[in-house]
Amino acid sequence: MSENAQSPLPESAQRVADLLAGIGHDRPVVMLPATGKTSAEAAAGLGCSVAEIAKSIIFRRVADDVPVLVIASGSNRVDESKVAARVGALGKADARFVREKTGYAIGGVCPIGHAVAPVMLLDADLFRYDSVWAAAGHPHAVFNLTPQQLQAMTGAEVADVAQAVAS
């Protein structure tokens, strides 16, 4: 992993770096040498557990086409019925919807700086960790923060969003 101080960040990652600086976040946007499109890829590049990746998943609320952002632990599958019980019926968000509503491409959706303010839920399981990594607007860009900082930055409701693990 490198902080890529010599070369400029991609435009979308620089936008996130500027947003973070504007709210006083003191940790840099880090560029992964390989893609971080999946939680497993990001964790491998960072040397952390998959569970410490705060993945951003976008759904479309059926009633009004509002984006719904679920920030989940990378090791969890999101239980759409739990999310729908809190925010209303959900539909799939295709790549065009995600880019249009967030300003980011799938694989790099940052939890902040969206084009359209989403309804947000934050996975309670993230609070098991001292720090987590979130996408920073580009498939290779991430930033580190505490779950408490993530909640403060987003204003997201903390909820149980994880699918139950079959035993």
Rank of each mutant, 00 (worst) to 15 (best):
C110Q: 06
F127K: 09
P118T: 14
A134G: 00
G108T: 06
K92D: 10
V87D: 07
F97A: 08
A95T: 12
V83D: 02
A152D: 12
P111T: 02
A124K: 12
A105E: 07
Q148G: 04
L145N: 01
D79V: 07
F97W: 02
K92V: 09
P118R: 07
G103R: 04
V119N: 08
A141N: 12
V83R: 01
H138P: 01
C110I: 07
N144K: 14
E100M: 15
H114S: 12
V83A: 02
L90P: 02
G107M: 07
P111E: 00
H114P: 09
D94M: 09
R99A: 07
W133E: 04
V109Q: 01
R128G: 11
Q148Y: 05
A117E: 13
A85D: 13
G103F: 01
K101Y: 11
C110D: 05
Q149P: 14
Y129W: 12
A124Q: 10
G108R: 05
D125M: 08
A152I: 15
D94H: 03
K82W: 09
R99L: 10
R86I: 08
C110V: 07
V83F: 00
L150G: 05
E100F: 12
V116R: 08
V98R: 00
A117H: 15
V142N: 04
A134R: 03
V109P: 00
L90G: 06
L126Y: 06
A84Q: 04
K101R: 15
F97Y: 11
G107L: 01
D130I: 09
L122N: 02
T102W: 00
A93Y: 02
Y129S: 02
A93N: 08
L126S: 01
S81N: 10
P118Y: 12
P147D: 06
F143P: 00
Q149D: 15
L150Q: 01
A117S: 14
D79A: 15
A136W: 02
P147A: 08
D94S: 09
I106S: 05
L145I: 04
P118C: 13
Q151D: 08
V119A: 13
S81I: 06
E80G: 06
A124V: 12
R96Q: 08
D125P: 04
A152T: 15
G137W: 03
